[in-house]
Nucleic acid binder design. Structure first.
Length: 251
DNA sequence: CTCAAGGCACGGTG
DNA sequence: TCACCGTGCCTTGA
């Protein structure tokens, strides 16, 4: 069953979309492989549109997590640094990018070239595609070694992303809180009162961020000091074909 | 002109 | 209690 949820219904309260009727059969993985009959939950607010589902059973998610721990190679050195307010920082997590050959993803002054798909990443991508009917040519892997690792508030508004395709976020490992905040309800000049939308991303879950969510809502993965185990997050994206760079008019 | 995938200081809270 | 959490701010280049 689905639940329509908005932030204002339960101010400052974490939304639990995780199905309370825990899955019991191994049907979960079989269903995921063949079609859509996943029990999707819908989360909506002004300008926000999310779909949430349990994509993998615990056993399968455990197996995938272990495989990724062996397969994924994370960036180090300057590829693991970003520039914010003019200063260079090491990102408080580990990152990797995989996808079709030649694809590049850039943000905050870093340019990350996609490595070729690993067997496990390709398998997960196929499962996500079966469940959503969407194609993806790229995945950003974020590994949070414990609750100290986190990601600050941002939007995935990169120009190279296909605006018509949702971003599909697969979570494996430790469950972590995830927070959305409307752009007009941030900072000192809060133009409007819009409650943040908070949810917990469970082991083996899939979250779809549909349009126009990334236009109006920032999201973050806040630090949670009491969490001592790692989480791997995969955000599958559709990157627009690399057109030739526009000729610069001047300079 | 706007705004930022970072850290830090600070005050409320359980 | 005091560790943790949420918020505002930083201040420079894109």
């Amino acid at each position: 069953m689905k639940r329509a949820l908005t932030g204002k219904e339960s101010p400052s309260k974490k939304i639990k979309v995780c199905d309370e009727e825990e899955e019991d059969e191994e049907e979960t993985s079989i269903a995921a492989e063949f079609s859509h009959p996943l029990p999707w939950g819908k989360i909506e607010a002004e300008g926000l549109d999310l779909d949430y589902a349990q994509l993998f059973s615990k056993d399968e998610a455990d197996r995938l997590f272990k495989q990724l721990e062996e397969e994924v190679e994370y960036f180090t050195g300057e590829k693991a640094q970003v520039k914010v307010f003019g200063k260079l920082y090491s990102v408080p997590r580990k990152q990797a990018t995989y996808g079709e050959p030649g694809l590049m993803y850039s943000f905050s002054g870093v340019h990350l070239l996609a490595r070729p798909w690993t067997p496990t990443l390709e398998h997960i991508r196929n499962t996500v595609t079966s469940a959503t009917g969407r194609s993806f040519n790229f995945v950003l892997v974020n590994r949070y070694k414990d609750g100290h690792d986190h990601m600050g508030e941002h939007r995935d508004d990169e120009k190279e992303l296909d605006p018509g395709c949702p971003i599909a976020s697969v979570s494996l490992g430790a469950a972590r809180d995830f927070v959305f905040r409307h752009r007009d309800a941030r900072g000192a000049k809060q133009r409007r009162h819009i409650e943040p939308v908070k949810l917990e991303l469970a082991h083996g879950s899939l979250l779809l961020m549909n349009q126009p969510t990334n236009t109006y809502w920032y999201h973050s993965l806040p630090a949670r000091k009491r969490i001592l185990t790692p989480r791997i997050n995969l955000t599958f994206r559709l990157i627009i074909c690399q057109g030739r760079k526009e000729p610069k008019p001047s300079q």
